[in-house]
């Protein structure tokens, strides 16, 4: 009985494989040889896992959230207090954001301390640095969206920090805010960045980053005399 089911699923697998070559892709990605490593090597996968959570919960939040000054906070309150499981979806996205920052930094520290950024993995490292900056950008733009006092003042402080950039600081702040101060223009800007621009860049870079991890393999733990 079990045998017949297995042959049937194998036949379906063969049919799809003949037309897509998925078995090779699968084994290249998941059945590759790796050196004996420790749990710290799971930090990248953990980051990827939380990223998936952020994408799923983020998409779900856009079904109700409205990036418009008069309604933004009301829609967030509606999600949190009136929708079934809205508290859960928003909570996952909220705490997932912190987890992203923590895990990305921890993953970076592992790479630095084990010297995993060296030849031939420099491009992996460079895309990783860009991904870290993107995660910060996500955190910054997402923080304004609940449109409450904390969100407002955090964005005031954040853009004032950008303002002290040499030479282009005040211009940079104006571009970020869409004006001299936080206004009706600021909220849709941050929203557009948070749900369209940044995800597009992030997912492209994640694709490159993961391709390189598979292509070059992972490093082993450095030995004492290395």
């Amino acid at each position: 009985m079990a045998n017949r089911k297995e042959t049937r699923s194998a036949r379906v697998g063969d049919w799809v494989d003949e037309r897509s070559g998925w078995r090779l892709a699968w084994s290249t990605v998941f059945i590759r040889k790796i050196p004996k490593v420790n749990w710290l090597y799971t930090l990248g996968s953990a980051t990827l896992f939380v990223l998936v959570i952020q994408v799923v919960t983020g998409v779900l939040l856009t079904f109700y959230y409205v990036p418009e000054p008069a309604q933004a906070h009301a829609s967030v309150r509606y999600i949190t207090h009136e929708l079934s499981f809205g508290w859960l979806i928003r909570g996952l996205h909220h705490f997932g954001a912190s987890a992203m920052v923590i895990l990305t930094i921890a993953h970076m520290l592992r790479v630095v301390l084990y010297g995993a950024y060296k030849y031939p993995r420099e491009i992996t490292w460079l895309t990783g640095v860009m991904l870290l900056l993107l995660v910060f950008s996500f955190g910054f733009t997402g923080y304004l969206l609940p449109w409450d006092q904390r969100a407002y003042w955090a964005s005031v402080v954040g853009t004032q920090i950008a303002e002290v950039t040499p030479f282009i600081g005040s211009w940079l702040k104006t571009v970020m805010l869409g004006g001299e101060e936080i206004s009706a223009l600021t909220l849709p800007r941050f929203y557009g960045a948070h749900v369209w621009a940044l995800p597009a860049i992030l997912l492209s870079l994640v694709g490159i980053h993961l391709y390189l991890v598979v292509r070059n393999g992972i490093t082993s733990i450095p030995k004492k005399d290395e």
């Binding site: 959570i53 799923v56 919960t57 779900l60 079904f63 929708l83 079934s84 499981f85 809205g86 979806i89």
Partner: peptide, 13 residues
């Protein structure tokens, strides 16, 4: 755990 609440969340209103 995420999917089941998500369905309730989407069809709730």
């Amino acid at each position: 755990m995420v999917g089941a609440p998500a369905i309730g969340y989407l069809i709730g209103p």
